[in-house]
Amino acid sequence: MQTSVTFKNLDPSENLKSYVKDKLDKFDRFLDNPAEANVVLSVEKFRHIAEFNIIGDRLKINGREETNDMYLAIDMVLDKLEKQIKKSKQKIRERRSDRKSGKAAAMDIEPGYIPEEDSGGEIIATTIDYKPMDPEEAVMQLDLSDDNFIVFTNSRTERINVVYRRNDGNYGLIQPAS
């Protein structure tokens, strides 16, 4: 981790600098990519203040502590930062697992909608089991569920169809062209 230590109202000390760098090197195990840490150590009257800003790996984490002892302030702020990093990493893992399991919200596409070429959105593929049934039965199944659409094999034509809820309260049927 690239670290810069700044001293305000305090004589620069190699001991404090090396202490901060040693502690921050332990954070590399939490971060996948290189990060940058900006540390400001200052003294105001009897208060010792440690401020840390860590930027990198899609994270921007800040922490600040005031105590009577500089080493204690550094340890306390690093504990806070560790909790913040773990929490952020957990959120990222949960978002990725939600995407992989197909829990993404279904899109409502209106008739005549043409997506922009440069929209930057992701296409998330999911697999769906579909059963043979009539379109009327598909509407009844849709009423029983909270879903916005149902994919099924039309028992009359033996082709895949989609029944969906429209914004006006009616139902739409999507059939392939012959």
Rank of each mutant, 00 (worst) to 15 (best):
F52I: 08
Y71N: 09
S155W: 09
P176F: 01
L72T: 12
S97C: 00
R166P: 02
A125V: 12
L10R: 03
E117C: 10
R165H: 01
Y130N: 06
I123W: 08
K100V: 13
I85N: 00
A35R: 05
V20P: 03
Q90R: 15
E122N: 08
G102K: 05
I123K: 11
A104H: 15
S88G: 12
D28I: 06
K131S: 12
N53S: 15
T3H: 03
M70P: 05
M1C: 06
N62I: 14
G172R: 03
R29G: 06
F152T: 08
L144T: 06
D22L: 04
L16H: 03
N33F: 15
Y164M: 03
K23P: 04
I55A: 11
D108A: 12
I174D: 02
E51T: 09
M140T: 13
E36V: 11
D129L: 15
D32G: 13
K83W: 07
T153D: 02
S145F: 07
N68G: 14
V162A: 07
V40H: 07
T67W: 02
N15W: 00
M133R: 04
S119W: 13
S13F: 01
A125G: 10
D118S: 11
N15E: 13
F30N: 00
I128K: 13
S119E: 10
L144H: 03
P115S: 04
V162K: 03
N33V: 12
L81W: 04
F30Q: 00
L59R: 09
A73L: 07
N161Y: 11
D69S: 07
Q90M: 13
E82Y: 02
M133Q: 12
R159Q: 14
K26I: 06
Q175N: 08
D98M: 14
L72K: 15
D129Y: 09
D28V: 02
R99K: 13
Y113E: 14
A35C: 06
K100N: 11
I85R: 00
N167R: 10
E66Y: 06
K103N: 12
D69K: 07
R29P: 07
I160D: 02
F52M: 04
V139Q: 02
M133K: 11
I74M: 01
E117Q: 14
I124E: 11
E94P: 04
R47T: 11
N148F: 10
I114Y: 05
E117N: 12
N9V: 03
V162F: 04
A106P: 08
G63F: 04
L10W: 00
I128D: 00
K21A: 08
L16T: 01
R165W: 00
A177N: 14
K103S: 07
I123F: 13
T153S: 12
R165E: 01
P115D: 06
F27R: 01
V40R: 11
R58V: 07
P135S: 09
D98L: 15
Y113F: 15
L41D: 00
K80A: 10
V43H: 02
E14V: 13
S42C: 03
Q2G: 00
D147H: 14
A35W: 08
D25P: 02
A104N: 14
Q2D: 09
S42V: 05
R29Y: 08
G63T: 04
H48G: 05
T6R: 15
R95Y: 14
E51H: 11
M133P: 13
I74Q: 01
D146C: 01
L10G: 05
V5P: 09
E36F: 15
F152Y: 05
F152K: 04
V151K: 02
